[in-house]
Amino acid sequence: MIIVDTIQQLRSTLEPYRKQGQRVALVPTMGFLHEGHLSLVDEAKARAEIVVMSIFVNPTQFGPGEDFESYPRDLEKDQAQAMQRGVSILFAPSAKEMYPAQSLTTVSVSEVTDRLCGASRPGHFDGVATVVTKLFNIVQPDFACFGMKDAQQLAVIQRFVQDLNMSVEIIPCPIVREADGLALSSRNVYLNMEERSQAVVLNEALTLAEQALQTATNGEAVKEQVRSLIETKPLAKIDYVELLTYPSLEPIEQLETAMDCIVALAVRFGKTRLIDNRMITIKRGERHVSDNDER
């Protein structure tokens, strides 16, 4: 595995592979890698000869009072895991390398950012869309792999790639969970023992929603069932429980005969804000859950 920390080094390293016609896949991360990140590497390796993983904690997507300074970091461990999993090139730039001067250009996506995390974290998705666009321009990948746990982020990226006619193919990848159902997240390390034990209610609530949607006709009633279950855990503080179309992320009031939807959650346990979701294709009389979970 080749490790680089400058844009010029990365471009120079990729050039001979491109001349040989080898395909390039990008796995963008903020580091502190877990099995969810590494599963993206597996998908990337299945599609391309060269896998570039970026590790960059992007300051522009963190708002005031959020955990940028304390966001977990362990580059040495990340390097070992990336090498073991088969990453070809690890790109670990500094903030100064990515933002050498005050940036006067921002990529902003409207409508799909109006709800969920976009509503409670103003400016967050401008930071995400801008840094991902920069990574696409730097790496020029054929494919880019993103986890479904950050479903709104994925929808935002899919939208600007479509709107800006980018040539990269976006590959959505399944959520990876612990044995008890908690979605893997770098922020799970913040949870104490009691918070961790109560956080499994998120997956339980999604399972409840999945079951309720088999027969429900009213979306608000399903959301209320989900809220009630989460609120049985005293440490849980709900940010949102939403039932939306996907990928347009429009509210659903009445469930139709056939539709694709996402049940999305954001809940705080102590100081830690966790997100989770499940995508469901509803067909009245039968119900199919899309393969976005590894169980």
Rank of each mutant, 00 (worst) to 15 (best):
I252L: 07
Q214D: 07
R273V: 01
Q254P: 01
G270H: 03
S228I: 05
T232D: 10
E250L: 14
V267W: 00
N277D: 01
L265C: 02
D260H: 12
N277K: 01
C261F: 03
T232Q: 15
R268E: 02
D276I: 04
T232Y: 06
N218V: 10
K223P: 00
A264M: 02
T232E: 15
A258L: 04
E253Q: 11
I262H: 00
Y246N: 13
I230S: 03
G270D: 02
L249K: 07
K223H: 00
V241M: 11
V241C: 14
A216F: 08
L243A: 11
Y240A: 08
V263D: 04
Q214V: 06
I275L: 01
I275H: 00
L229W: 06
V226C: 08
M259Y: 05
G219V: 05
R273I: 01
V222K: 04
L249Y: 12
T272L: 00
T232G: 13
T232P: 10
I238T: 09
K233H: 14
A266E: 05
R273N: 01
D239T: 13
L244P: 05
C261V: 08
N277F: 00
T217E: 14
I230T: 04
T215S: 15
E242K: 12
M259N: 06
L244G: 05
L274K: 01
A216L: 08
E242R: 09
L249N: 08
C261P: 01
L249I: 13
K233P: 09
Q214H: 10
K271D: 13
D239S: 12
L249W: 07
R227S: 15
P247Y: 09
T232N: 13
Y240S: 09
L243D: 11
